[in-house]
Design a protein around this nucleic acid. Sequence first.
RNA 1: GUGGUUGUAGCUCAGCUGGUUAGAGCACCAGAUUGUGGUUCUGGGGGUCGUCGGUUCGAACCCGAUCAUCCACCCCA
Length: 460
Amino acid sequence: MSKIQVSVPKGTRDFGPEVMRKRNYIFGVIAAVYEKFGYQPLETPSMELLSTLTGKYGEEGDKLIFKILNNGAYLSKLSPEDLASLKERGEKFLTSKISEKALRYDLTVPFARFVVQHRNDIVFPFKRYQIQPVWRADNPQRGRYREFYQCDADVVGSPSLLYEAELVQIFDEVLDTLGLPGFSIKINNRKILGGLAEVLGIEDRFASFLIGLDKLDKIGEDGVRKELTERGFEEGTIHKAFEILLDPAAAPQKLDELQAFFSGNATGSKGVEELRFIWTALESAPLRKATLELDLSLARGLDYYTGAIFEVKAHGVQMGSICGGGRYDNLTGIFGLEGVSGVGISFGADRIYDVMEELKLFPQALSRSSDLLITNFGEKEALHGLQLAQELRAAGIKTEIYPEAGKLKKQFEYATKKGIPYLLMLGENEVNTGIYGLKNQLSGEQINGNIQQIISEIKK
RNA sequence: GUGGUUGUAGCUCAGCUGGUUAGAGCACCAGAUUGUGGUUCUGGGGGUCGUCGGUUCGAACCCGAUCAUCCACCCCA
């Protein structure tokens, strides 16, 4: 045994063949639905200029960006004075001197960069989807990794609420296609929360309020009460906020109530109006399987959201949200392109994977590498097998040949381990007669027939 | 960054209050008279007990440090 440590870096994973099939299946379904709605594929580099990323994710976020060390003699570029004052000037200064690239932290900021950089070549509204890994130097724990995939779709360059409705339809179609038996799409609007903050007179501490509120799901009503109190909010403020946020009325009625609540408050009224539009739109084009929920406590951490916000939860499993999204009015502003509104969603592939595994929703056929193994009885038979394999593959049957004329027992075991359901018995007799034996591993039954009969039996 | 958990074979773990050559199950490899597997039986390979140091006649076990891991918090997907 080798003594050197063989492992992957903390928070990263290998994906073996079986896992890859399932992951590709999920990615494939998501991409196909995105395409169906007219979204175009986009990839951006794994690394961005560090200056593109810093400052976009807040103080905490900056610390979680993986920096890439400059190539070459990066230390020699530091002047003696710089070197002497490193301790006092701190990490930020050193980082700026020895690193100018970093791994992307999400797909949204690189997308914004892309849009601004190529603004003259893009047809607006620009609809794109992007399925790529992102990296965060976070401490790994359950369901949280340092390298993970995001599956984003965004449309920029239009404030139309039709897109909100469309993105909800995409949630619905993807998750229904994947076979989830039930899930809730929760909707809220930042303007409602913003309006509420205005009514309560806590605009200055809005972000802090949202962070506390967002935990409702996790720590419950009392927990949030306590949290908000600790964050310095008045008892009366919290009470008033909860009165409207946790009002149990169903959607249309609740919207009416909100409308009354926000009379005289422009921000809140706008939020209600937007929500009502989306609600009406989705009523006229009903969803396949999703339960649409108006959830006023939904806040979502990302502070660039300005309008609608979404979150999706699967039914029947203990799992956080599996999708998210929302409208952001000024994402490209940070790169100098003002007034471009965008709205986007993201599927959490890892969590969807876990949900599907738990609910056993992956198609059986995904775990099979090949449909058929052609046995090997010797060189002459194997060459004949090579020809047969081509015919079988042309008929759409995933076929492989056992590499050597080993014991039949080993050949069977190989097929069993790889989950190959059929074996083609190909010895001297078969080569001479053109009548082959097809053994079904699951049933143990064997039929004999010519190549056409074999093909139709497998495809049955 | 903060708090806790756990490190023994490829995997899951056992190893009584420190006592000779550290075990089990699964996995792996080879056989049970060479054209039919999954079962069963027999045999086999594989661990300097995370690492370094200390206490002791003697350490997988006690102490310290260090690294890694998982979980929770902050934040997030």
